[in-house]
Design a protein around this nucleic acid. Sequence first.
RNA 1: AAAACAGGCUGCUCUAUCGUCUUUAUAGCUUUAUGGCUAUGGGGAAGGAAAGUCCGGGCAGCACAUGGCAGCUCGCCUCCUAACGGGAGGAUCACGACAUUUAAUUGGCGGGAUAGAAAGUGUAACAGAAAAUUGUCCUGAGUGUAUCAGGAGUGAAAAAAGCUGAUGGUAACAUUAGUGAUCUACAAACCUCGGGUGCUGAAAGGUCAAAUAAGUUCCGGUGUAAGGUUAGCCAGACCGUUCGGAAUGGGUGGACUGAUACAACUUGCCAGUGAUGGUAAGUGCAGAUAAAUGAUAGGGAAUUACAGAACCCGGCUUAUAGGUCUGUUUUUAUU
RNA 2: ACUCUGUUCGUCUAAUGGUUUGAGGACGUCUGCCUUUCUAGCAGAAAAAAAGGGUUCGAUUCCCUUACAGAGUA
Length: 129
Amino acid sequence: MEKHTFKRSERLKSKKIIGEIFSNGKVIGAHPIKLFWIEVKDSSAIDQPILQFAFTVSKKKFKKAVDRNRIKRLMRESVRLQKHELIQMDEINKSRFAFMFLYIGEELPEYQNVEQKIKKCIDQFKITI
RNA sequence: AAAACAGGCUGCUCUAUCGUCUUUAUAGCUUUAUGGCUAUGGGGAAGGAAAGUCCGGGCAGCACAUGGCAGCUCGCCUCCUAACGGGAGGAUCACGACAUUUAAUUGGCGGGAUAGAAAGUGUAACAGAAAAUUGUCCUGAGUGUAUCAGGAGUGAAAAAAGCUGAUGGUAACAUUAGUGAUCUACAAACCUCGGGUGCUGAAAGGUCAAAUAAGUUCCGGUGUAAGGUUAGCCAGACCGUUCGGAAUGGGUGGACUGAUACAACUUGCCAGUGAUGGUAAGUGCAGAUAAAUGAUAGGGAAUUACAGAACCCGGCUUAUAGGUCUGUUUUUAUU
RNA sequence: ACUCUGUUCGUCUAAUGGUUUGAGGACGUCUGCCUUUCUAGCAGAAAAAAAGGGUUCGAUUCCCUUACAGAGUA
């Protein structure tokens, strides 16, 4: 059976790449979630995993830290359960990708809703590649 | 027993599967080694407010941060505390709702205020004769003036605060006797007196590796003029100029440390009205770094409130579903 | 994580440093006049101290707490 793990090294940490995602990355929208992604061509970190993810929620829309944590946890959980679909694809394995999930909604979501929207994002990503 | 008010305590739980951070044991891979990665098993994983950042302290750097002024801040008394603007117990004053009384009053409760107005300056609308060196009208004392006593009216306020002694109390102060004729209020107006206070803030600071110019730092000699120093002013301190030697290296992105064992927590006993202190036994209880607690399914009364550690403590303030305890008042029932 | 400002009609703002404050002005809104009608013009009206507590005879102003908005430090 497939293991749905989500290790620390799979999280996107580099400030450089995050900056590049917002300036040059491509966008897939599935309201209330936006996905920024980019193909990473930096060959210096070849031992890194092929996929890296980050999650973010605006402090202006959600003032309470509890709400922001909740949304990030929900998005992280649904990505954890769905990212194996991406790993199985052949095109993905040829290079490395970085993803940034951004929640732009106004209200606290349910888990099922988040799961559907993330799925939509990933399907769109598969098509574009 | 119910309701209202006030205060204290608590702050959902269990099972299964998958997943995150940390610690530890074993095995494998890697490394000169410390260590790192992976797998499996065990232990631990947000709060009463983690919040607001309103105070106090530890810790660190800046001249091993020294004195005065300015500025800021606090201000009844005694005590608690590492410290505080916090807390406990008391004193005085007016206020609030409640009870009581025909009424004046009295009673406990509640939150608040209280250094100095006899050091000086300032302000006190309207009304009123007069708002602080003021004296209207009426009555009485007085021959009369001056003065004294009582009353009227205006207004928030219209003339007894102080001093000396005695008694009680550690004290604030209370009671009482005498003396006393230039005396109100406001200091959350300026101010005076007394106490405290240097500034900055873990994104502080320290160590390591990669890379390298201007430069920077250190040591020794020389030198004390301008000027400079995370510093508002004065003093004091240090730096400086030049020569020689040594070390380091801007930006960028990292790792380790700071960093989780202490004013710690739990229980018992003792002292105290109490805050709190002493003592004995036991416990080890988050430590992340783009930042860890979630998802699914099912139960237990049941869509659980407010809400997420970021260097650490002591308070204050604010938010809060449900449960629970104590006190006061009212109503009802029983004795 | 830390530091600091501000909040006055629908909008932008003023003065008051405690006593005729009935809170002023501009733009906007409404009503009337004018005009064949609209605009412009003239006349008039409505409309505000973030919330709560304290000091005071009296608070928009002084003090405290809370809420909201904004700025700065990497």
